[in-house]
Amino acid sequence: MHRLTTAGIDIGSSAIKVAVVDEEADGQITVRSAVSERIRRRAPAQVLGLIFERALAEARVGAAADLAYIASTGEGDVAQGLRTGHFYGMTSHARGGLILEPRARTVLDVGALYARAIQVDEHAKVLSYRMTSQCAAGTGQFVENIARYLGVRLDEVGDISNAAQRAEPVSGICAVLAETDVINMVSRGIATGEILRGIHESIAQQLAKLLRAARGKGPVLMTGGLAADAGLRAALTRRLGEDDKAPEILSHPRSLYAGAIGAAAWGAFRHRKLERAAPIDQEAGLA
């Protein structure tokens, strides 16, 4: 077996992430580059064009044609024409999660619009999963909206929340009601940290329910945009601490890229599988 270089494109609702990885002959995955860009009211295709080139440059890959497989995940239609294949978000996060933290047996993906708990085996095969409903409460977009109301930078949210001594209770059912709650709290002079901690407690309550429903076992690796939020991790650890066998909650500096990394790794797997079945270029003209 030879080394393969592949790319994964994770099209989220608020940001696009691209990872370029090497799969060595022994199956080891090395991340060569991982970049992200927020969409911010631009055409997602335009954003993808920008960061895909950046990811290739950082990985020192000359052109898309030099990649063995380009895999999309998430809202992958944007990558049509560029991609070789598509993997469902859950499948990609499961694989990416295990590449980042091989001990993980549950991946908790908290993105801008959805959260999902995915129970996996040691081969990154999805055993069971649970996903939040369409309501945005408990997701990244909600936290971003609240941070904007409070005039706080997104990367400060976790530390400010953790520094607070108490949490101001917030509606845990509806993002719209919670946002109204926050406006009232600001007018009542509640401290920003207490509001943010209340928000984190509210989200953690929902994520804990999700983990229990998915029967998440073993160490839990958080992926997606909110994985970097230390305040949320702390709140979730506290919330799950109420259980007898509370799992360890983990994060990784590259948690944001778990979907893109996982898609790229599955791409390498597929390339080898198709290569074994028939020479890909002759069979279907796949890159």
Partner: peptide, 18 residues
């Protein structure tokens, strides 16, 4: 179609990967 897409997507993945 979200749930149908989810079901078809995971079906496609399971066939492709496993």
């Amino acid at each position: 179609f979200q749930s149908i897409r989810e079901q078809a997507g995971t079906f496609a993945d399971s066939v492709k990967l496993w």
